[in-house]
Design a binder for these strands. Structure first.
Lengths: 344, 344
DNA sequence: TTGTAAGCGTTATCAA
DNA sequence: TTGATAACGCTTACAA
């Protein structure tokens, strides 16, 4: 391992001079020695020891990404939204010259450990942390960025999207296309702010148009028998013709259930997803969905993080990014009066 | 921040004693003081400083996961295989009491930095690193686990799957179902060992059965006009009826192109994927695919890593995991003589 | 512009 | 069973 000292000896200077050069404090060092030292460091293959740096300066160039890990069966990163977001975030953070650490966390203890152990410069929370936020907030002074949080704690920095409006847009679009008998499919977790707001926006818009969703049309995507449920509600006298799902992944499961139940999309059943994850455009038929700009979100999170790291006094802020409806081919127009048919 | 010293003062012992207790060297410390110190540490909310540990012991409980980052447009983790594998790996590694760092790497410099900067205990390589392996190997003494490498360097520890056999199985299955005119769709990267071996296995099995694939049926999945290509080769006198793709993601793109070209799967065109990623069973129709056990692979990688960390003298080994064909509904039986029809 | 000295929190080593 | 001391590689603060 090459250390500052090694370089210093070779260059005939003190290790402080080398340190300064390595940190780009070029104005403090004469151009000549600076050049010389850089060359030697290069030759010797010097790589700064981040642990030593962190220890000495009590500030690391390390960011922790915390993913809430609820389910033993699956991994948070199997959810395309999470992996896309985390993937973009990693790249952004690396571009800023920081390193990234991943932690799956279950309880407060593991969150605390993740934050303290490597004295990270900041942390990004992906997933549900609402229960612990107050405590986390209290116990830490480093910048903490939450995503998609609907915590009642006011003073947190959060980056989310307009879930409510997303729900509204889905409702509106389905209504415009003549659908009146609708259903909602998503995880049962009512406590989850994101899902709840999507559902609320959806229902509110319907209500404004004199339509309501019966409780049995709010379906738990975790249940085993989606096929049968679908078959039941989409057949008979007053069939459900449109479904709003909380995620594109969930939509793909609806596709599969519909296929098994011999329901054709969009002929028998229209579906709207959420997220606009990579795969959505490749589903059969391509999925109409409420898009959130994941790359942009990651970018905003990263910038916010850097701002807070550079200046600890920046006040907490809650950023809400917009969503947009991406029209593809999973919703059929069933207007009575002549309307625009979906093109193929 | 609570340090060993703080605890030591409170307990009226030296920090060495506390250190020993915190490291579970209970046999070196009297049971009584050990208990007492543990309690105090708990009360004070002590979290060990990993940087200091790493510096003092020149050995961290940190693993680096390196993902090769080729494409600016997309992120390695948008590939479902990568995110699944990485997700499982993270969990395993965390279970072993190690922390995980993610690095996207492009060139040798960034690889070197990732490995040296935090003096990690070991590293896992995900993706293509064949060009640099020799150099990486030479410059590092820590355990390095490669995945899916077909490097000619003999002395590396690698965990891969039987890509060749996967290709054979796909060919065999298509032949059994009466397909004679076949195509292959995958990334153009011929230098990529994984893809090449899948293709070779595929072709070899066909050749053994007197069938060959014309070059124009080996299609670059990166090209824009997959729809047209598909339309061209799947219509006419001697249409392609079966396609083998290098990944499930690629298969979903074939699905989409087929949909656009008004080719029905499996009626007009049969498709076999590779990986058996989560989404595959939810495609329409559910995808027949060559499955690799990603969770198991992550487990093997992790165990291997731990073994090498504990004992630096373990010889390099190349583990090859099996693959299996998962029969779903994307391949049609077009046998002339009466055969088994796929059930729906 | 450069160097000296102390210290970051921990562990290794040796002594008691 | 415990403690004193040095050391890990670097930065901070100050001195020259």
């Amino acid at each position: 391992m090459v250390t500052l000292k090694d370089i210093a000896q070779r260059a005939g200077v003190s290790s402080m001079t080398v340190s300064r050069v390595m940190n780009g404090n070029t104005k403090d060092v004469s151009k000549k020695t600076s050049q010389r030292i850089k060359k030697i460091a290069e030759e010797m293959g010097y790589v700064p020891n981040s642990s030593a740096r962190a220890l000495a300066s009590s500030a690391s160039r390390l960011i922790a990404a915390l993913l809430s890990d609820y389910d033993e069966e699956t991994t948070p990163l199997e959810d395309s939204y999470n992996s896309s977001f985390f993937g973009e975030l990693s790249r952004q953070i690396q571009k800023e010259g920081y390193d990234l650490m991943l932690h799956y966390v279950k309880d407060y203890t593991s969150i605390n450990y993740s934050l303290k152990s490597w004295n990270v410069a900041g942390a990004v929370f992906i997933g549900m942390f609402d229960e612990n936020i107050k405590k986390i907030q209290k116990d830490n002074t480093i910048p903490l960025i939450f995503t998609d949080s609907y915590s009642s704690v006011r003073s947190i920095t959060n980056v989310g999207i307009d879930d409510y409006q997303g729900g509204e847009m889905a409702a509106e679009y389905l209504l415009e296309h003549g659908h009146r008998n609708l259903a909602f499919i998503g995880p049962a977790a009512v406590s989850n702010g994101v899902i709840m707001h999507r559902l609320q926006g959806f229902c509110a818009c319907l209500r404004d148009n004199g339509i309501s969703i019966p409780p049995e049309h709010i379906i738990d995507s975790g249940a085993e028998n989606m096929e049968q449920t679908l078959a039941k509600i989409c057949r008979g006298d007053d069939p459900v013709t449109g479904i709003f799902t909380t995620s594109d992944f969930c939509a793909s499961r609806v596709y599969a259930a519909a296929y098994q139940a011999r329901l054709r999309i969009p002929d028998d059943l229209s579906v709207i997803g959420f997220d606009d994850v990579r795969i959505s455009r490749y589903l059969t038929p391509p999925l109409t969905t409420i898009r959130q700009d994941i790359k942009r979100k990651a970018d905003v999170v990263c910038q916010l993080l850097m701002k807070h790291i550079r200046n600890q006094d920046v006040p907490a802020e809650n950023m809400v990014l917009g969503v947009e409806l991406i029209e593809r081919e999973s919703v059929r127009n069933i207007q009575k009066k002549p309307g625009v048919e979906l093109q193929r």
